[in-house]
Amino acid sequence: MSGSYFLRRLLLAVPTLFGVAVIVFVLLRVVPGDPIAMMIPPGAGADDIENLRRVYGLDQPMLVQFTRWLSDVARGDFGVSINLRQDVGRLVLSRLPASLELAVVATALAVLSGGLLAIAGVYWRGRWPEAVVDGLTGLTLAIPDFLWGLVFILVLGVLLPVLPISGRLDPRQAIAFSSQFYLAESLLRGEFRVLGMLFTHLVLPAAALALPLMAVIARMLKTSLSEAMTQDYVLVARVKGFTRGRIILREALRNAMIPTVTLTGVQFTFLVGGTVLVERIFSYPGIGNMAIGAVISRDLPLIQGLILTFAALFIAINLLVDLTTVMLNPRVRHG
């Protein structure tokens, strides 16, 4: 795999994003729900309604609207949100860090717990802990993330009120951040009190998102590890007298990790885009929450901006996953 391959992948992103832009733009204008119909004043005549369309740039033919929008987007201008009355690009960028931090923490929790479960399952293969691991992954996979969210709210927010259940930070505390990456910023500044407060707000939504992913990772890694444990190099290691723990961690894990890394990368993208319900339940101010508001109010420029951002993110993360696979897998690196 060479640099030209990645350059090709980058160039391919342009028509992909263009395709997404066309589909989104057309779909939004075909599906029912006119943003102007939601703000028609009482007593308005046809002229007044037409004037509102003109003010929001919806009076032109679809092709003209699309051409204008696309040329603006090419210049980095995503338009102004109808409902929030602010620059769409700035709005999306201001909210993306919250969702990214949530997705990163959720993925970290899922990888850590899923990895441990998989290793435990293989280590105690054929014994009762493996059955516990299988049962646990089956249970967590069967319940969707938003239901886990509600369970956490009920148990850790109401019955045993130890963790906050809404928002990203404590609204009573006046804390100034210079970026939207609150968690990373407070970590870099060494403000551990703030970091703790942010983490306690993050942990429940992150755990709700992490549980189903944890189960997927645990199952995938356990299968890969079990396969790896039957390979010749593992047999050699056994003959050498290595302990089972050492064989799993030092010999089998690295090879078994490759499909799990690919899966985790893809799942991370879905996690960023799939935080909608969890963000809603925990009143977490990320792009998922923003997307719901945009769809309800038919805020066309904002929906378009959000979907293009998701698409760009998806492409970028896929590239990163490919890069990581190359680093981990010598057959791909030298192939």
Partner: peptide, 17 residues
């Protein structure tokens, strides 16, 4: 606090938050 989910609003008031 903007708590758009009704279940979460119930939890907010019930927990004393």
């Amino acid at each position: 606090k903007f708590v758009t989910d009704a279940t979460s609003r119930v939890a907010e008031i019930e927990s004393g938050a």
